[in-house]
Design a protein around this nucleic acid. Structure first.
Length: 655
DNA sequence: GTTTCGGTTCTTTTT
DNA sequence: GAACCGAAAC
């Protein structure tokens, strides 16, 4: 390897790059050049003669995966081709497409998103029988099953811990789990958890293939390791069990995926589980000003950390972080826009600014105001393109056109028809599943009822020799557009989305890849942002912002109920995770950090300033003229006012 | 037995 | 908005 490249690294980073063999735990604080170090490690391995195909890079979110692979390409050019890199789910999909037969699926298995899974769960519960002794929503049942899968805990145990007094429930869950698994195999459909569950199955045991996969990757590197759950950890451990080169990088202060089974304990216990493991701290922060780091450190002051690491600021001093305390959400949006505009005047491009929030709902008002003011933005998080009902209808049509025998897709499509509900949809599927497109005529002749119902859409679904995108277009113009017009008042926008979807489809020659990319939301966002170089303000959830950085970061919705989220308030563990979310948000900022805490919460409720403000108030500037409740100072003489009095008074003043 | 319609309630975070 | 529930309509 060229020494000049090594010289771009600090001594802490360099030692990871050149001595990262065996089991290694890199404790990388926010902004300490974590991704840079991984990418250079890869570069170093290649320079030592390691084949690209022998390296596996794993992360958790699409964004982080894309960032990592892009930086590999930037540093290594075409030499990076052949490296296995992506999210756990992405790599699982890639491997399972080759090996599906070994775990009871065919290579064309479909991937269900949360909605599909919920629907199937509901239907399965109906046919299997409700849980005894207690009514339970399908979501709850689903999340218990998912938790069990992701933590490698027997479902009975999970249920027993959660509902200790009900003694038939664990048994019911065990049987239902078996039933549901079988049902998914019957449908040839996997949910997100299954991708990991079957990947683990594939690499476990003593079969020839399992052993081959365990020997497949000489070097396994995992980024954001603090977000790993037990299932993923088991996969990683197996994959590295032969060559034993496992390098994990993470920061226990940034663990924010507890809700999907992630447990900081994995990173904290890494040295115990791999006794030969070496630890490498990366403690120099290159990203943020000392002022911003000060806020980050203050936010974590009360937080229990296993690995104490004093993050050192490398950059010179900048401006102090500021807190805005507007009354309403409109005022908050307006204040944010003022800041954004001021930054633009000071030469900070929209590209280098971000508005972050805890929950997508917090962004609604923000979005409206941005639109009104004509500020270009991209929204990350919340309802994604492929999750919208009309796009899912298009996908279902595509699946029927392509695969024909797809029960879920048929169900979705037929229920769009007038006079078809769940019952008729099942009847139609019973006919279609026995029939191939060729002998369709005959089957329909035997089932005139079904034939009548299907008449409006059938001719669009039959193969006519043209490519998928063209056929989707015909289906859209021939029938679906009319359906949208009859059912939605925003039919035009939805139609436009469908047209965009058709052009997306036309870029693929490999349909399986197309459907996988849709299910894993891989390519679309990249696609949507390509070829459009207008600078845009990023509006993102904190989760989606992880690993990214901007010159200016504005965190909105810093109120109790949003951050920390009200559903986390009664669990100490979850509250800690909320605190880490604040830490992640703060450490995204390079030069300027603005926090905003409006008195109006989601749904017009009165909102208190976030309890976390208490911990950071000495390192931020609070606005003048605001009292401890975050409200404008009101003095009407006489005795001090309580919060409620003040709110009532302010309402009056406002109107 | 089914579908449709109208009113009600809620809306964390990601793969 | 959109998912859900109960009641009316087919």
């Amino acid at each position: 390897m060229d020494d000049s490249i090594l010289n771009l690294l600090n001594p802490q980073q360099r030692v990871v790059v050149t001595e990262g063999d065996g089991a290694c735990l890199v404790l990388a604080g926010a902004g300490s050049g974590k991704t840079k170090t991984i990418v250079h490690r890869v570069s170093y391995l290649l320079s030592q003669g390691v084949e690209p195909g022998d390296i596996l890079l794993l992360t958790f979110t699409n964004k982080a995966a894309r960032e990592m692979m892009e930086r590999c390409t930037a540093l290594l050019g075409h030499a990076s081709q052949g490296i296995w890199g992506g999210t756990f789910h992405h790599i699982a999909n890639r491997i399972l497409r080759q090996e599906a037969g070994r775990v009871g699926f065919t290579p064309r298995f479909t991937i269900m998103d949360e909605d599909d899974k919920k629907k199937l769960l509901k239907k399965s519960i109906k046919s299997f029988g409700e849980p005894p002794e207690r009514a339970m929503k399908p979501e709850v049942i689903g999340s218990l099953l998912s938790y069990a899968a992701n933590t490698l805990t027997p479902i009975e145990e999970v249920v027993h811990m959660r509902f200790s007094r009900v003694d038939q429930l664990p048994q019911w869950f065990r049987d239902f789990d078996t039933f549901f698994r079988a049902r998914k195999k019957e449908l040839n459909a996997m949910d997100f958890d299954d991708l990991l569950v079957y990947w683990l199955e594939l690499v476990s045991g003593e079969s020839e293939r399992a052993r081959a996969w365990r020997e497949r990757f000489r070097y396994v590197l995992v980024d954001e390791y603090q977000d790993i759950n037990r299932l993923q950890d088991a996969i990683v451990e197996r994959l590295a069990s032969h060559h034993k080169n496992l390098l994990v990088v993470g920061d226990d202060a940034q663990s924010i995926y507890g809700f999907r089974g992630a447990d900081v304990d994995h990173i904290r216990s890494f040295p115990k589980r791999f006794p030969t493991a070496r630890m490498f701290p990366l403690t120099i922060n290159y990203r943020s000003t000392p002022e911003i780091l000060g806020v980050a450190n203050a936010a974590l002051k009360e937080h229990q950390q296993a690995f104490q690491k004093e993050l050192r600021a490398e950059r010179p001093h900048g401006v102090r972080a500021r807190l805005l305390e507007p009354l309403t959400l409109e005022e908050e949006a307006q204040a944010v826009i003022d800041e954004v505009r001021r930054n633009q005047r000071n030469g900070i491009s929209l590209n280098d600014q971000a508005v972050l929030f805890r929950a997508s709902a917090s962004s609604v008002t923000m979005e409206l105001e941005l639109q009104r003011e004509g500020i270009p933005y991209i929204l990350r998080g919340g309802m994604r393109f492929f999750q919208q009902a009309h796009i899912k209808d298009m996908v279902a049509a595509a699946k029927v056109m392509r695969y024909w025998h797809d029960e879920l897709a048929w169900g979705r499509l037929t229920e769009l028809l007038k006079g078809v509900g769940p019952a008729a949809a099942t009847r139609i599927w019973m006919v279609m599943k026995e029939v191939s497109p060729d002998d369709l005529e005959e089957a329909l002749a035997h089932n005139p009822g079904v034939a009548t119902l299907l008449k409006p859409i059938l001719r669009h679904l039959k193969d006519n020799g043209t490519d998928l995108a063209t056929r989707l277009n015909e289906w859209l113009n021939g029938w679906y557009r009319t359906y949208l017009e009859e059912n939605y008042d925003d039919a035009q926008e939805r139609t436009d989305d469908c047209i965009a979807f058709c052009s997306f489809v036309s870029k693929y020659t490999d349909t399986e890849q197309l459907f996988a990319d849709i299910a894993l939301s891989e390519r679309f966002e990249k696609d949507a942002t390509e070829g459009n170089d207008t600078p845009r303000l990023v509006c993102s959830t904190i989760h989606q912002a992880k690993g990214l950085e901007w010159s200016s970061v504005i965190l909105i919705g810093l109120v109790d109920g949003a951050l920390p989220h009200y559903r986390s308030l009664n669990s100490l563990l979850e509250l800690e995770e909320e605190r880490r979310l604040l830490y992640v948000a703060v450490t995204r900022a390079k030069d300027q950090l603005i926090l905003s805490s409006a008195r109006e919460g989601i749904g017009g409720q009165y909102a208190l300033p976030s309890r976390f403000i208490e911990d950071i108030k000495h390192v931020i500037d609070r606005p003048q003229g605001v009292d401890d409740d975050g409200l404008p100072v009101i003095d009407i003489g006489g005795k001090p006012l309580g919060i409620l009095d003040k709110v009532m008074l302010l309402r009056k003043i406002k109107h």
